[in-house]
C-alpha cells in the first residue's frame, strides 16, 4: 500500500480500541519462559557448581551455590580416577551403532508396513507394536541368556544388537511414510524401479526429517542407557559413561566423592548437549510427529 492511498480507516468508522503493542506480549512470554528455563537449568548449574567444590563444602548447610575456591583440578582428577576416555569412546560407539541400526531397521520395517501388501501385514504390525507394552525388566534374563548363547556378553555388540530394533521407531517411520503421496512411488514403479530402489531413492530421501528425529531420540536414549549395560558389561574397558559414573559410588553414600562425580557428570553430558543443540528443531518436531495419524 502506498502512502498516497491515505489512512486505511474511514472517517465514519468508530475508532478501534488501542491495541497492546506486540512487543509487550513477546516480552512477557520471554520473561515467563526465561524464568521457567532458569528453573530447568538450575540442576545443571548446581551440578557444575558442585563439581568445583571440595567434599567438605558439599557437606555443608546451608548450602552455598558458589564455591569458596574454584577447584578446577576436580576435572582432571575425575578424568584420571577411572578411564573416562575409554568410557567415552565406548558410549560413542554404542550410541552411533544403535542409532544406525534403529534407523536402518525402522525405516525398512516402516516401509514394509506402510507400502508393501502381504497377508497378515497389519496384524503383524500390531503384534510388533504390542511388544512396547512388555516392560524391559521382564525381558532382561531371557535376553541375557540369549546374548550368552550368542557369546556377546561383555561386548559392545551385545549392547547394540538388542537395541537396534525399535517398535516405536518402526511406528514412527510407518506413520510418516503413510503421509507421503503414493503417486510418487507409483511413478517410480511405472518407470521400472524395484521396491528396493523405490525405498532407497524415493522414500528415504523424503523421510529425512523423521529420520533425523528418530536418530536424535535414539542417540540420546542410547547415550543415557544404564540398566542393560549394567547387566551385560563386566569389564572396565567395555563400560559406557553411565556405568563409569557409578564407579565412584561406594557402598556407603558418605564415602562417595561427590565433587568428582559431579565433575564427571558434567563432561559426560557435553556430547548430548551438542547433539541436542544441533538437532533441536528435529527433536521438537519429533514430539509432534509421534502424534501423526495414518
Amino acid at each position: 500500500m502506498s502512502q498516497a492511498a491515505g489512512p486505511a480507516t474511514a472517517p465514519d468508522t468508530p475508532a478501534a480500541p488501542p491495541r497492546r503493542p506486540r512487543w509487550l506480549g513477546d516480552a512477557l512470554a520471554w520473561a515467563v519462559l526465561s524464568v521457567l528455563g532458569l528453573f530447568w537449568l538450575l540442576p545443571f548449574l548446581w551440578m557444575v557448581a558442585n563439581s568445583l567444590k571440595s567434599l567438605a563444602e558439599i557437606y555443608s548447610f546451608p548450602p552455598t551455590f558458589f564455591p569458596d575456591q574454584l577447584r578446577w583440578w576436580n576435572y582432571p582428577d575425575a578424568w584420571t580416577a577411572v578411564p573416562f576416555a575409554r568410557f567415552f569412546t565406548n558410549s560413542v560407539i554404542v550410541s552411533l551403532g544403535t542409532t544406525a541400526g534403529v534407523l536402518l531397521t525402522s525405516a525398512m520395517a516402516g516401509y514394509s508396513f506402510a507400502r508393501l501388501r502381504y497377508p497378515g501385514r497389519d496384524k503383524l504390525f500390531i503384534a510388533y507394536l504390542a511388544t512396547m507394552m512388555v516392560p524391559f525388566p521382564v525381558l532382561i534374563i531371557p535376553l541375557f541368556i540369549l546374548m550368552g548363547q550368542l557369546g556377546l556378553i561383555d561386548t559392545l555388540i551385545g549392547l547394540i544388537l538388542p537395541a537396534a530394533f525399535s517398535a516405536w521407531g518402526t511406528f514412527l517411520m510407518r506413520q510418516f511414510m503413510l503421509s507421503i503421496p503414493r503417486e510418487l512411488e507409483e511413478a517410480a514403479r511405472v518407470d521400472g524401479a524395484s521396491y528396493w530402489r523405490v525405498f532407497v531413492q524415493i522414500m528415504l530421501p523424503l523421510c529425512t526429517p523423521v529420520l533425523a528425529t528418530l536418530g536424535i531420540f535414539t542417540f540420546l536414549g542410547s547415550w543415557n542407557q544404564f540398566l542393560w549395560p549394567l547387566i551385560m558389561i563386566s569389564s572396565v574397558q567395555n563400560k559406557t559413561l553411565p556405568l563409569g559414573l557409578t564407579m565412584f559410588q561406594a557402598q556407603a553414600t558418605v564415602e562417595t566423592p561427590w565433587h568428582l562425580v559431579m565433575a564427571a557428570a558434567t563432561f559426560s553430558i557435553l556430547p548430548v548437549l551438542v547433539v541436542f543443540v544441533l538437532g533441536q528443531r528435529y527433536y521438537v518436531r519429533g514430539i509432534a510427529t509421534t502424534g501423526v495419524k495414518g
Binding site: 549394567l230 563386566s234 564407579m247
Partner: peptide, 13 residues
C-alpha cells in the same frame, strides 16, 4: 577377571 565399580544398589540387580 574381577568386576568392580558397580554401585551398591545396582550390584544386587
Amino acid at each position: 577377571e574381577l568386576e568392580y565399580g558397580t554401585a551398591w544398589a545396582d550390584y544386587w540387580t
